[in-house]
Write a protein that binds this DNA or RNA. Structure first.
Length: 426
RNA sequence: GUGGCUGUAGCUCAAUGGCAGAGCACUUGACUGUGGAUCAAGGGGUUGAGGGUUCGAGCCCCUUCAGCCACCCCA
């Protein structure tokens, strides 16, 4: 170990070295293309928000135990944003009178939650958010499926690898009411539904009785959860699936009465995407319809639908299937100008400038050194062409240009150097 | 917040309680105008940190920190 201890990074954060940054940038470019293909505009909010913004609606667990909360110098409680939707709601509410609805916006930025890091979960992560506000039709909900399907296809994820599971909270609430489950117990029941796959049947039933369900209610709820055609009772879901079909996204979407989602503010459609082999147990993305959020942050009532996808899990899934593109690590420099000797430095500086003026990405070796060392440097960095002005070239006003891929080297008049380099790059 | 596993060279990893090593990487040279291949030499370590047991600790014990994994929960 080094004698000096390097100061560590904050737990659960990542250092994006160039090779990792290349992956993040690729993901960003891909998301941008997908969102823009559907006419969505990019936006961003502040990283810091007041605790109040989340206190009402995001859910107790999220705010009390998972949010980064601290007091600023003025004594206000500040939160590192754990999600974007409340910020979006505020931004919309502030300009509600001047925006043209429906609004279609997307974003990709950092979020924090204070948890123990593990596979697929960190304390700082990036999230793609896509939302449409001002329409409350099932067809709008279906557009989210189309966006997600478009993204999956673009990165090579097939319906055999990932599926979006969809449910509707109104449908579930109607049944909860029919079964005599009081409104205040529905949150507990939703949590219970959510845990079904994670517990043994016996434990799960016992847990159900603990939250006040009787045997008859449990029996009926199990029948509901196992009914793949339950969606047909819901006019909303029937229209939703019809639209999903028309949008060509059906193969990625399935109905699942067990999907409830943890966030309090969802009121209608809810969904999450999962990796089908089950090796990556976390949701790839999740979202739903929120009818009351705008009013809750002080705006006029306005319905919205949206989803969020974290970079950590999607990267794991893409890695698993070998779908992260190669060649992401290509060095930006197309040509390196070597420095023959101390007194040749002006030639190298001028040549670099000339080549840049010709539109090339040029990296100059910053000082005179043994040529072997300089060529080795270019080779290690993967720079495809090296240009050099030695004494002979200086005398004849020419440039030696070497193709590092083929090994071919030619001497050309200085005015033709850029052209020759472009030939090598082609 | 609870539990398990792992910390040795830049990286991947060895080393019955008995001289801290290998491969790759790096530097230099063979090759005084040229990378990759080969050969040779070289630099690099408070074995995560602190304490304890022992004639002797990388190894055993305690504490602590970090990373990973699972639980909890999931935006």
């Amino acid at each position: 170990m080094a004698k000096k201890t390097i100061i560590g990074s904050v737990k659960g954060t990542r250092d994006f070295y160039p090779e990792r940054m290349a992956v993040r940038s690729w993901l960003y470019r891909t998301l941008k293309e997908v969102a823009e293909a559907f006419g969505y505009q990019e936006y961003e909010g502040p990283i810091l928000e007041t605790l109040d913004l989340y206190a009402a609606k995001s859910g107790e667990e999220l705010v009390k135990e998972q949010a980064y909360v601290f007091e600023d110098r003025g004594g206000d409680l500040i939160t590192l944003r754990p999600e974007l939707t409340p910020t979006l709601a505020r931004m919309i509410a502030q300009r509600q009178k001047q925006l043209h609805f429906p609004v279609r916006w997307w974003s990709f930025g950092p979020f924090w939650r204070y948890e123990r890091p593990q596979k697929g979960r960190l304390r700082e992560f990036f999230q793609w958010n896509v939302d449409m506000l001002g329409v409350d039709t099932p067809e709008a909900d279906a557009e989210m499926m189309a966006i997600i399907a478009h993204f999956f296809r673009k990165v090579g994820l097939t319906p055999e690898m990932v599926q979006i599971r969809v449910n509707n909270r109104r449908l579930m609430d109607d049944h909860f009411q029919r079964l005599g489950i009081p409104a205040e117990a529905r949150m507990a029941v939703s949590n219970w539904v959510d845990r079904r796959q994670k517990m043994s049947p016996a434990d799960w039933e016992a847990y159900g009785r603990d939250i006040g369900l009787d045997a008859g209610q449990i029996h009926e709820l199990v029948a509901l959860l196992d009914d793949p055609n339950l969606w047909q009772e819901s006019e909303e879901l029937v229209r939703f699936f019809r639209a999903v079909e028309a949008l060509g996204a059906s193969e990625y979407v399935t109905y699942d009465a067990g999907i409830v989602r943890g966030l309090l503010y969802y009121t209608g459609t809810v969904f999450e995407a999962q990796e089908m082999a089950g090796e990556i147990r976390r949701a790839v993305l999740g979202g739903g319809r929120y009818d009351n959020l705008l009013a809750d942050v002080g705006g006029e009532p306005l319905s919205g639908i949206g989803f969020a996808m974290g970079d950590v899990v999607i990267t794991l899934v893409l890695e698993k299937y070998g779908l992260l593109p190669d060649r992401l690590q290509a060095h930006p420099a197309q040509v390196m100008v070597a420095v023959f000797a101390e007194d040749m430095l002006p030639h190298s500086l001028q040549l670099s400038s000339e080549l840049r003026a010709a539109g090339l990405n040029v990296l100059m070796y910053p000082k005179a050194a043994k040529l072997g060392k300089q060529f080795k440097y270019a080779n290690r960095l993967g720079i495809p062409v090296v240009a050099l002005i030695g004494e002979d070239e200086a005398a004849s006003h020419s440039v030696a240009v070497k193709n590092m891929t083929s090994g071919e080297q030619v001497v050309v008049p200085r005015a033709q150097a850029a052209e020759k380099i472009c030939q090598f790059l082609a």
